[in-house]
Design a binder for these strands. Structure first.
Lengths: 211, 211
DNA sequence: ACCAATACCTACCAGGTGGTAGGCGGTGAA
DNA sequence: TTCACCGCCTACCACCTGGTAGGTATTGGT
């Protein structure tokens, strides 16, 4: 888990393109069968190279996993911060992020699967997720504390508890959403709407409480 | 995914005891490395038999998985219905269930990992989890509708949405709780307390809104 | 045009995978 | 005491796993 970022621009254009392709394929396959359940040969096959060819780009399976995780962070963070810079509030940007994720099933799936798998301390992504949850919870709590100071929080809401609840809700809804993809369209879980409903019980400036 | 229940009482006492032992070991190992990441030899080794010995009791790996899932259902449902029969409300029984689960890490872990893994349609536990979520959500919604009819629901709460939120919150908090086990005791997530705080915003008879 | 770095490839490895075949002693009802 | 069933074993199978060795063709800055 060291800086892959620094090494991202290395090599020829062809190689860089192939690395991107590999990461996309890995996202899809890790999502379907988890990290342990996916072989390098499967991933390599999906991008039309041999598995030692893949290992030329990512020296170990864990290094590939690292690249996958980093990929989502970069994408999500960029979109989220775009929203913020356009003057949208944190909760609104959060809802928009969830709405965008509902269009990228593999990304959602890979994170749901890996976050659960990596609860084991010796999983190669364990440290990553420990850090990620700590950061996400802290960011969310800080915004809630600011909202409280500005009187935008409903009375009795504890910022730290609400932060945990928001993150838990997003994670849990993702799983329900993934299962609901089996159902007909009208029966599918609307993650963004459900999150919004909860945020309305936390922030005073996120719509009326009445549905 | 057919009735293992019917076959549970078969064989000699020794065999039945060993099957129970195997299920316990499988719970622990599936929790650590997931279904795909755990080998039959590991499980067999943990209970002191060879892996064909294990396959004598459970003819395939998927059959063992099925037994593991069924095991939790039996245990959880029994405790929950005990609470209900002693006159406790559904939300209170839910909080007590979560509190009990905080003492059985492997059970929580195996469900968190498998529920995420099994979002893939071809996972051997996929149908099980589809059914389980449908049932759980329906049960929860029905209780919320009853509460609404009895005026025990806060205004503006949609029973179906609240049911999804409760289930999502429980799932999401479990993951956060598992990661928080790395942290010192006082920094650990209190799943039951956080769930209770949310239930207080849904039911009118679950304590004051002010923390 | 040169040439080092890059992008692959085939062949191979040791070790692990779920599952099968067939045996052998123990169990417990008749 | 018989005897069908049970618990579990060793040996084996074909196949898959991540990773290495060492080769060749391509790329692209000089």
């Amino acid at each position: 888990m060291t800086a892959t970022t620094a090494a991202a621009g290395r090599g020829y254009a062809k190689g860089r393109a192939k690395r991107e392709e590999i990461v996309q394929a890995a996202i899809g396959l890790f999502a379907e069968t988890g990290y342990h359940g996916t072989s390098l040969r499967e991933i390599a096959g999906r991008v039309g190279i041999s598995h030692p060819g893949l290992l030329h780009h990512f020296p170990t399976k864990a290094a590939l996993l690292e690249a996958v995780l980093e990929h989502r962070d970069v994408v999500d963070r960029a979109d989220f911060e775009d929203d913020r810079e356009q003057g949208r509030s944190v909760p609104e940007s959060l809802v928009r992020l969830v709405r965008r994720n509902a269009l990228r099933r593999p990304i959602v799936e890979v994170f749901a699967v890996l976050a659960a798998e990596a609860t084991s301390p010796d999983h190669p992504a364990h440290e990553y997720f420990v850090r990620r949850y700590a950061e996400t919870l802290a960011d969310s709590r800080i915004d809630l504390e600011r909202a409280a100071a500005e009187g935008r929080l409903r009375p009795g809401v504890d910022p730290a508890a609400a932060a945990r609840a928001i993150v838990a809700l997003m994670d849990g809804l993702q799983v329900q959403w993934l299962y609901s993809l089996d159902h007909p369209k009208e029966a599918r879980v609307d993650m963004a709407a459900d999150l919004e409903a909860y945020l309305a019980t936390v922030y005073t400036d996120r719509g009326d409480l009445r549905a």
